[in-house]
Measured scan of single mutants.
Amino acid sequence: SQTQRTQDENEARRIAEEWKRRGYDVEVRNRNGHWEVTWD
């Protein structure tokens, strides 16, 4: 799996939607004030 971090929730949601469209299983988490998008 791969993880991308961002400070911006909207960006995190956009990234998550992009990977979901490509057929990946995606998880979005808030950790210590930043957002992590993990896909595999």
Rank of each mutant, 00 (worst) to 15 (best):
E9H: 05
E27N: 09
V37P: 00
R22M: 10
E18K: 09
T38I: 13
R29E: 06
R14L: 09
Q2V: 11
T6L: 11
K20D: 03
H34K: 09
N10P: 07
H34E: 12
E18H: 12
E27F: 10
R21Y: 06
R22I: 05
N32G: 12
H34Q: 13
R14W: 07
V37G: 00
Q7F: 11
E27P: 01
E17S: 06
Q2G: 14
T38V: 13
D40M: 15
A16I: 04
T6E: 05
V28I: 13
S1M: 13
Q4M: 15
E27W: 10
A16P: 00
T3R: 07
A12R: 02
R22W: 07
G23N: 02
E17V: 05
W35K: 00
D40I: 15
T6M: 09
D25Y: 14
R29K: 11
V28W: 03
R13M: 10
Q7V: 11
H34I: 15
D25Q: 14
V37N: 00
W39L: 07
D40F: 15
S1G: 12
I15N: 01
R29C: 11
N32A: 09
G23H: 03
E36R: 02
S1A: 13
E18G: 06
N10Y: 12
V26D: 00
R29V: 14
N30V: 12
E27H: 13
Q7D: 13
W19H: 03
Q7R: 12
R5L: 11
T38F: 11
V26I: 04
S1H: 12
V37Y: 02
N30L: 14
V37Q: 00
V26Y: 02
R22H: 06
W39S: 04
R21M: 10
R29F: 12
R14G: 04
D8G: 06
N10R: 11
V28T: 03
N32D: 13
I15D: 01
Q4K: 11
S1I: 13
D8V: 03
D8L: 05
Q2L: 10
V28S: 01
G33V: 02
D40K: 15
D40A: 15
R22E: 05
R14N: 06
G33I: 02
W19V: 04
S1E: 10
R13W: 13
W19I: 05
V37L: 05
R31N: 12
E36H: 04
V37K: 01
E36P: 00
V26A: 08
R13G: 03
E17G: 05
E9V: 06
D25N: 15
A16V: 04
S1R: 13
H34F: 15
S1Y: 13
Y24D: 01
R14K: 10
G33N: 06
Q7L: 12
Q4T: 13
W35N: 00
R14C: 09
N30T: 08
V26M: 02
R5G: 06
R21W: 05
W35Q: 00
R14Q: 10
D25R: 14
D25A: 12
Y24I: 05
S1K: 14
W19L: 15
K20M: 11
T6V: 14
R14H: 06
T3S: 10
W19T: 01
R14Y: 06
K20V: 09
E9Y: 12
Q2S: 10
K20Q: 10
N32F: 09
H34P: 01
K20H: 08
D25L: 13
W39D: 01
E9L: 08
E18I: 11
R14M: 09
N10D: 13
Q2N: 13
E9Q: 06
E18Q: 09
D40E: 13
E11T: 09
G23Y: 02
K20L: 12
V26R: 01
E27R: 10
T38G: 03
R13F: 09
E9S: 04
T3E: 05
R21H: 09
E11V: 07
E9I: 07
R14V: 07
D8Q: 05
E11N: 05
G23C: 10
D40T: 15
S1Q: 12
E9K: 05
Y24R: 04
R29W: 08
T38E: 06
T3L: 10
N30E: 14
A12V: 03
S1D: 08
V28Y: 04
W39Y: 08
D25S: 13
T3Y: 10
T38R: 10
I15H: 02
G23S: 02
E27L: 11
E9W: 09
W35L: 01
N32Y: 08
T6K: 03
E36K: 02
Q4A: 13
D40C: 15
N10Q: 13
R13S: 04
Q4L: 15
E9F: 09
Q7A: 13
R29M: 10
E11S: 07
H34G: 09
V37H: 00
Y24K: 03
I15K: 04
H34D: 07
R22P: 00
T3Q: 07
G33E: 04
R13A: 05
R21N: 11
E36I: 11
W35M: 01
Q4G: 05
W19P: 00
K20I: 11
T3A: 08
S1V: 12
N10T: 11
D40G: 15
R22A: 08
W19D: 00
N10M: 13
I15R: 03
R31E: 10
E36Q: 05
W39F: 08
D8S: 11
R22Y: 05
W39A: 06
E18D: 09
N30A: 09
W19N: 01
N32S: 07
Q2T: 12
R13Q: 08
R5K: 10
Q7I: 10
V26H: 01
R21V: 08
E17N: 08
E11M: 08
W19Q: 03
G23T: 01
R5N: 07
Q4N: 06
W39K: 05
Q4V: 15
W39R: 11
V37M: 02
V28P: 01
W19F: 11
A12F: 02
D25I: 14
D8E: 06
S1P: 14
Q2F: 15
T3P: 07
R29S: 10
Y24Q: 02
R5I: 15
G33K: 03
E27Q: 14
E11K: 04
E11Y: 07
R31H: 12
W39I: 14
D40L: 14
E27S: 12
R31C: 14
R13K: 09
R13H: 09
E36G: 02
E9N: 02
E27V: 14
Y24H: 05
W35A: 00
Y24N: 02
V26L: 03
T3H: 08
N32T: 04
R31G: 05
T6H: 07
E17M: 08
E36S: 05
N30K: 13
E17I: 06
Q4H: 15
N10G: 11
E18T: 07
Q4F: 15
W39Q: 03
A16F: 05
W39T: 06
Y24M: 05
I15E: 02
D40R: 15
T6D: 03
D8H: 07
N30M: 14
V26S: 04
E27G: 05
R13E: 05
H34N: 09
E11I: 07
R5S: 09
K20G: 06
E11A: 07
D40N: 14
T38K: 09
E9G: 04
V28D: 01
H34M: 15
R21K: 13
A12G: 02
G33D: 07
W35Y: 05
Q4D: 05
V26P: 03
E27M: 11
N10V: 11
E11P: 00
V28A: 02
G23W: 02
E36D: 04
A16W: 05
R14I: 08
R22D: 03
G33F: 03
G33M: 03
W35E: 00
Q7S: 12
D25P: 06
I15T: 04
D25M: 13
R31T: 11
I15W: 14
N32E: 09
E27Y: 11
Y24W: 08
T6G: 05
R31F: 13
N30D: 08
A16Q: 05
R21Q: 11
R31W: 11
V28K: 01
V26G: 01
N10H: 11
R31M: 14
V37E: 00
D40S: 15
Q7Y: 11
I15M: 08
D40V: 15
E27A: 11
D25H: 15
E27T: 14
R14F: 06
Q2E: 07
W39P: 03
